Structure formats: structure tokens, C-alpha cells
Amino acid sequence: DPDTRIPVINLEDGTRLVGEDAPKNKDLVEWLKLHPTYTVDM
């Protein structure tokens, strides 16, 4: 689902973004380019 929010984690300080704070699936690739310290939180 393009509107599903994907949890991400900041590799530098461990900050996790989940729920309403997390980027949407459809925006994920662009969002990660803009926030290079974050990666998808598995």
C-alpha cells in the first residue's frame, strides 16, 4: 500500500520514526535520499 508508513531508524543516534512520524511507502525512496543517516528499521 503506497500510504503504509515504513518505520525508519537513524544509524547515528538510534532515533526511530514510527507511525505518523514515519515516511509513507510511496515517499520512502525520496525521503531516504533527503535523510541519509536513516535506514529502514526491520
Rank of each mutant, 00 (worst) to 15 (best):
L34A: 15
A22H: 07
T39M: 05
L32M: 10
R16Q: 08
D41L: 02
L34W: 07
K33N: 11
T37D: 11
A22I: 03
M42L: 09
V40N: 06
K24Y: 08
P7M: 07
L34N: 13
D3Q: 11
N25S: 11
K24S: 09
T37G: 13
P2T: 15
W31N: 08
D3I: 03
D3P: 02
D3G: 05
T39L: 05
D13A: 09
N25L: 08
I6G: 13
W31D: 11
V18T: 15
P36V: 01
L34T: 14
E30F: 02
L32E: 06
T39W: 00
T39Y: 06
I6P: 01
P23V: 01
E30W: 03
V8E: 03
E20A: 10
H35G: 01
T15R: 14
L11I: 15
N25G: 10
E30R: 07
E20I: 09
D27K: 03
H35K: 03
T15Y: 03
V40R: 12
G14V: 15
T37A: 10
T39G: 07
Y38V: 01
K26A: 12
V18W: 10
A22N: 03
K33V: 08
V8F: 00
R16F: 10
I6L: 01
V8D: 03
K26V: 09
L32A: 03
G14L: 04
R5K: 15
D3E: 14
E20D: 12
L11R: 11
R5P: 13
V40K: 11
H35V: 01
L32V: 02
L28S: 05
R16W: 09
D21R: 07
V29C: 11
E30T: 13
N10I: 00
K26N: 07
K26T: 06
T37K: 12
T37F: 01
V40A: 15
L28E: 05
R16G: 05
D41E: 09
A22K: 02
T37Y: 06
L11K: 13
I6F: 07
D41P: 04
P36C: 01
K26S: 11
L28T: 06
N10K: 06
N25I: 06
N25V: 03
D3R: 08
P2A: 13
T37I: 08
P7N: 10
I9F: 12
D27M: 01
H35C: 00
V29N: 15
N25C: 07
T37E: 09
L28V: 09
E30V: 05
G14D: 10
Y38F: 10
D21S: 11
P7D: 15
P36I: 01
N25K: 14
T15A: 14
D3F: 08
K24A: 13
E20R: 09
D1G: 00
N10S: 13
V8A: 03
W31H: 02
K33R: 14
W31P: 10
D21E: 09
D27I: 04
E20H: 03
V29F: 09
H35D: 03
D41F: 00
A22F: 04
I9T: 13
V29D: 13
T15P: 08
T15S: 14
P7C: 06
G19L: 03
I9G: 10
I9C: 11
I9S: 11
L28H: 10
V40C: 10
D1Y: 07
L32Q: 14
L17G: 06
V40I: 10
P23S: 01
R16K: 14
L11S: 15
K26Y: 04
D21G: 08
H35F: 01
V18P: 06
D3W: 03
T39C: 09
D13G: 07
P23F: 01
T39P: 01
D27H: 08
V8K: 05
L34S: 13
L17I: 13
L28M: 07
T15C: 05
K24L: 11
E30H: 08
R16L: 12
L28C: 07
P23L: 01
P7G: 15
H35M: 04
H35Q: 02
W31I: 04
L11V: 15
L11H: 15
K24F: 04
L32I: 04
K24N: 06
L28R: 05
T37H: 13
E20P: 07
T15G: 14
Y38E: 05
G19A: 07
L34D: 12
N10D: 10
R5Q: 03
D41A: 05
P23A: 00
D21L: 10
D1W: 00
H35I: 00
R5G: 05
L11P: 12
E20M: 08
L17P: 00
E30G: 10
W31T: 05
I9L: 14
D1R: 00
W31G: 10
P7S: 13
L34R: 13
G14M: 15
I9R: 14
D3S: 10
P23Q: 08
V8W: 01
V40H: 06
P2D: 07
L11T: 15
G14S: 10
P2M: 10
K26M: 07
H35A: 05
P2Q: 15
L17D: 05
V40L: 05
N10H: 07
P23N: 00
Y38H: 09
I9V: 14
G19S: 04
P36N: 06
R16C: 15
E30M: 07
V29A: 15
N25W: 05
